[in-house]
């Protein structure tokens, strides 16, 4: 089985979010980048398929040279080879078209992407990629088993979950549940050394028009001070929620 894991390169979850150039660009100053958390769960599940079922695992990112450190980290965790599609990732649809080209050239059976990236929160690349590649698609995937060319997947739905059966080729939009938090791996020294020698190929982008453009950013208005209520006066809280906030 050939697996491709799509890796989005995103600001660490503790990053302060700021903008520059008249609020038109994300300010990367002092920002640490990490593997998108949803993709880290997917990559860890891919490692399981590699170790238990003999799958090969490639990772891919669509982005500039600055994302290579993130791809190397995925190699250090255990992926076999990395691919970077050399173009700025500005629009989800365009990214999906680049990825579809990688999938077509690589003949992958299973593509593991994340439910959403924590930067632009598009939640669109996996579904678009599946449709463009003519593959089956399971979104918000919290469990995946593969038997030959058949797959059983669990999908999170509003208020619960459902189990589906499908077949390869398959794309999933994954999240926590694919593996548990405690299964995540921190790259060790040996992994980091080996990652340096693993192939990271840079491929040129295909033509893909953007369908959206981020025009401007804005930060939410600052919050007013909290109103403290004494623990001996809970009636006051009920009163405030009813008469002032009007939420009960």
């Amino acid at each position: 089985m050939k697996i491709l894991v799509c890796i989005s390169h995103v600001p660490d979850t503790t990053s302060k979010i700021n903008f520059t150039e008249g609020d038109t660009k994300f300010d990367t100053n002092g920002v640490q980048y990490v593997i998108n958390p949803n993709d880290e769960f997917g990559l860890t599940r891919a490692m399981w398929f590699k170790e238990k079922q003999g799958a090969s695992v490639d990772v891919v990112n669509v982005g500039g040279r600055e994302t290579e450190a993130t791809l190397r980290k995925a190699l250090a965790i255990g992926a076999d080879t990395a691919i970077r599609v050399n173009t700025e990732a500005t629009d989800g649809f365009a990214v999906a078209k680049q990825l579809a080209n990688v999938v077509a050239n690589g003949g992958y059976d299973l593509v593991i992407a994340g439910r959403e990236s924590i930067d632009y929160n598009g939640g669109m690349v996996p579904g678009m990629l599946a449709s463009l590649s003519g593959a089956n698609f399971v979104n918000t995937c919290i469990g995946l088993e593969i038997y030959g060319t058949q797959a059983t997947a669990t999908r999170e739905i509003d208020g619960g979950k459902e189990t589906v059966t499908t077949s390869l080729p398959l794309v999933i939009g994954g999240q926590k549940g694919l593996v548990e938090e405690s299964d995540l791996r921190i790259p060790n020294m040996r992994g980091i050394m080996m990652a340096r020698k693993k192939p990271l190929s840079v491929v040129e982008a295909v033509d893909a028009n953007a369908t959206t453009a981020a025009v401007k950013f804005e930060k939410p208005a600052a919050k007013g001070a909290v109103k403290l209520v004494s623990p001996d006066n809970i009636d006051e809280l009920v009163n405030l929620l009813h008469n002032e906030a009007k939420v009960i």
């Binding site: 649809f93 579904g127 449709s131 463009l132 698609f137 918000t140 739905i157 369908t211």
Partner: peptide, 23 residues
């Protein structure tokens, strides 16, 4: 933004060759 709608929207975008803005 329900789970089902978020599942459909990206596929619909490809079907219609349409740009999609979420959230």
């Amino acid at each position: 933004s329900s789970a089902d709608s978020k599942y459909i929207a990206p596929m619909l975008a490809v079907n219609l060759n349409a740009g999609f803005a979420s959230n």
